[in-house]
């Protein structure tokens, strides 16, 4: 079986600095795959390279059988890949509803978009209550929900999430991770990047550990949770 998303040996530079030194991993259809690692390990760079905001000097990214290594960022979402970026990056000056509609930018069928909107509102009732509000006035948790709802509006096959727990209270973090599980159970493949390694490993089918631009370890989520070196470095035990 070939993977839904296959990243092969990507190398990314920021000027002269090599941020990714040949990263490879794969995500199979239906999985939750977590990418964990410390600050600066290159996790966000990996996601940005997959969705075309950054470009790899070498290597390949294959999605759904197609080589997307050189595909421009704005063409990725209509291929079925949504990206919830780090720090959420919702459009602060647009209303909540306008943000959600931006998620369906590449879709044409008005009726289907309306159905997706209903589904998003069902998963995030708070967004419906605040649909006319300017998005920048939402709380951190609500902004994260908006960013996720916005991504779901493209009806993605796979969703890439970058640090969804960042800056949220423990209670909200648990809520967000429950939502990620639900999104996955509804049939969307998830590639999750997290500093909160414990949470990320506990919901992941498989996971990769990234250290200064290299994948140093991979395995099942539960195996890595019990791995001594992971425990020591990332789970502060």
């Amino acid at each position: 079986m070939s993977a839904l998303l296959q990243v092969e040996n990507i190398e990314v530079y920021y000027g002269a600095i090599k941020a990714l030194k040949g990263v490879s991993f794969e995500v199979n259809k239906g999985e939750i795959v977590s990418l964990i690692g410390a600050n600066g390990a290159g996790k966000t760079t990996v996601l940005h390279t997959i969705t075309g905001l950054l470009h790899s000097k070498n290597g390949k990214i294959i999605y759904d059988g197609k080589d997307i290594t050189k595909t421009p960022a704005h063409k990725i979402v209509s291929m079925g890949m949504a990206h919830v970026p780090e720090r959420r990056r919702i459009f602060q000056q647009l209303t909540v509803l306008e943000n959600i509609k931006m998620g369906a930018y590449t879709r044409k069928d008005k009726k289907e978009i309306e159905e997706s909107l209903e589904a998003v509102y069902k998963s995030f009732p708070r967004l419906k209550e605040r649909e006319k509000q300017i998005a920048g006035t939402l709380s951190g948790g609500e902004q994260q929900m908006l960013a996720m709802g916005r991504a779901l509006m493209s009806k993605p096959e796979i969703i890439l999430m970058d640090e969804p727990s960042m800056g949220l209270s423990p209670l909200l973090v648990s809520e967000i991770f429950e939502i990620i599980k639900t999104i996955n159970e509804n049939g969307t493949t998830v590639l999750l990047v997290e500093q909160n390694a414990k949470k990320a490993l506990s919901i992941a089918d498989r996971a990769y550990v990234l250290e200064t631009g290299n994948v140093v370890l991979s395995g099942n989520g539960s195996d890595l949770l019990n791995d001594e070196s992971v425990k020591k470095a990332y789970l502060s035990e």
């Binding site: 704005h74 459009f91 931006m102």
Partner: peptide, 14 residues
């Protein structure tokens, strides 16, 4: 308006 606020995020929307 989306592009004027955040070009990268706008690209991710397509």
């Amino acid at each position: 308006r989306a592009v004027s606020e955040d070009k990268g995020a706008a690209q991710l929307m397509g």
